[in-house]
Structure formats: structure tokens, C-alpha cells
Amino acid sequence: MNLYRPPSLTTRCRDWMGQQWAVIGGVLVVVAIIVVAHRSAEVFRVTTIEEPGWEAFSRAHAVAEFGDDGYFVRAVQHGYNLFFYTEKYAWRFTRKRAGDGHNSCASCHTVEQLAYAFVNSDREDPALQRRVSFEERVMRCYAGQMDGFVPTRYDPAVRDLRILARMVARHLNLGEGALRDET
């Protein structure tokens, strides 16, 4: 008598599941962790968020001349966000939080001042006795006034402020070394 019977499909399936339960369980746990994480916390996305005031700012400074989107305008918009909402957009480089005083660039400066600082940068600073670039000024601001950390020179936290300053300088029709009281 032949005792061997080929296993049915369900048995084979169950056997396979029995062997692989650890792996299937592992995958399920991993997926569950990710789903729960995405449900419970703020998600990082590569988009430029439109903060209040951007609409008016971009109209006042004729940013639309460069278009509505595209790399340059997005950098300007990010620069705007950094300038007015520093604690939210440069959180890595400042210990200031939403409730603190003087927690953004706009607490001390205006964008016009930023533009004038830009066209007057790369000059010798009498106090420091060396030539200081615009990027270094921004880095010093993060380290000092913002009670934070030094970003690298290429970090968009620095670069986009420079691009914002360029944009505003263009709007004010500034040239290299322009003085404030220039008519």
C-alpha cells in the first residue's frame, strides 16, 4: 500500500507560511511602523510652502518677472521663508523657537537692509580687520544673534538668503557698493 499522498495545495501553502511566518511577520511589522509614523508625525516633503505675506511680497518686488515657479523663484521664496520665519525653516541652525523674542532675521533687519548689505559685502570689516563676505555675515548671524550653529557656505539656509538679497537689490535697482542715502 502506498502511504504517500501528495500534499494538497492548502497544506503546501500552510507549510510554506509556516516556514516563512517570521519573514512575513517581519515585513508586516516594518510596514506597520512606517504607516503609524506617517500617520502620527509631520512628513517631510520637497515642496516650498507658501507662508502668509509671500503673495504681497512677490507682487511688491515683481518676482513674477522670473515666472511663478522654477529654481530661481523657489529659491527666492525659500529665502523669504527663511528671512521671516527663521525658527521654522532654519531650525537646524537656531536654538530660538516660536515663542522666543528676536527669533527671525526680520526681527532685526528689513529685506532692503539685506540687499544693501549684499551689494556692500566682500569689503574689509574694520572691527575684524579682514574682508568679510555676505555668506560669512549670514553664518555669523546664525551663530551669534540666533544663538545657534554655523551652516556650511553652500547650505540653502545661506544661499537662499543671498538669492533673496539679490532679488531685492534688483528690485531696488542697486549697483555694486550702493549707499543708502543714494537718490
Binding site: A37, S40, R95, R97, V150, P151
Partner: peptide, 18 residues
């Protein structure tokens, strides 16, 4: 002007991303 690893204390146990 020494760069540091900089702040991430405001992040929680997980920072989901897309």
C-alpha cells in the same frame, strides 16, 4: 566659525519623509 552637527532636538522618535 566651526561647523557643528547642529540642532535636531525638535525631532521626535521618527521623522517620516517622502
Amino acid at each position: 566659525l566651526v561647523e557643528q552637527t547642529a540642532d535636531f532636538s525638535s525631532l521626535g522618535l521618527v521623522y517620516p519623509s517622502l
